[in-house]
């Protein structure tokens, strides 16, 4: 079965290279002709993100997933996610606030965690009225990342009720381990804006 995973991974890899080629062409055209094709680039990156997530889900379901944990500066991570999302949200009339109070580098899988946050913000954008907030803080020795919106909240706060994306996110959170503790994903309602809250805790 190892073969199948290799075939899938190599297919995803090639597809992402093609997408990168497309994005580079678009970026060059934007620069050359003074265009703004940010939405086209956003769609390309979203497609690439979806491919990666599908592969990650496959690995997780087969229990073959391994994190790539590196020291990451939390404020930088938040800023990057904001960079990926802010323009797109603005087109939908939504603002994204970022609040990070964590000074320290944190050991986490930077790319998978960024993907979870990107995905959470995309989800939030479908329900938010006008605002979304991404915040990072420390609680009980854990890193606490939250995505909140001012929509009407989750009808069901069980991550399993929300399809594969959140299941994968919950599993990735859980794979983050330090000494005896492991990470978690929690959905609730309320928060700063009174809407849906997704909270990712990493030890």
């Amino acid at each position: 079965m190892h073969r199948l995973l290799d075939v899938l991974a190599s297919g995803v890899h090639d597809a992402k290279n093609q997408l990168f080629y497309a994005e580079a062409q678009i970026a060059a055209a934007e620069a050359a002709h003074g265009l703004d094709l940010a939405e086209a680039r956003y769609a390309i990156e979203a497609a690439a993100g979806r491919l990666s997530r599908t592969l990650a889900a496959y690995r997780l379901l087969r229990d073959e997933a391994r994190l790539a944990v590196v020291p990451a500066v939390v404020a930088d991570l938040c800023e990057e996610v904001a960079l990926d999302q802010r323009k797109h949200l603005a087109r939908a009339g939504l603002t994204l606030d970022v609040a990070c109070t964590v000074r320290d580098e944190w050991a986490l899988d930077r790319d998978l965690v960024a993907d979870i946050l990107n995905n959470a913000i995309q989800n939030a954008s479908r329900h938010a009225r006008s605002r979304i907030r991404l915040s990072a803080g420390e609680a009980d020795g854990s890193l606490c990342l939250r995505v909140e919106d001012d929509g009407c909240g989750f009808a069901d706060t069980d991550p399993a009720a929300h399809g594969i994306g959140l299941l994968v996110a919950a599993r990735i959170a859980e794979l983050h381990r330090r000494q005896e503790r492991h990470g978690s994903l929690r959905l609730c309602n309320g928060g700063e804006f009174g809407g849906a809250v997704l909270e990712l805790r990493l030890p």
Binding site: K16, F20, R41, A48, D76, E79, D111
Partner: peptide, 16 residues
């Protein structure tokens, strides 16, 4: 940095 990425993201990373 993971492909695909935008010029803005590359700038951000290089500045870091």
């Amino acid at each position: 940095i993971i492909k695909p990425f935008s010029p803005d993201k590359l700038i951000l990373r290089l500045e870091r």
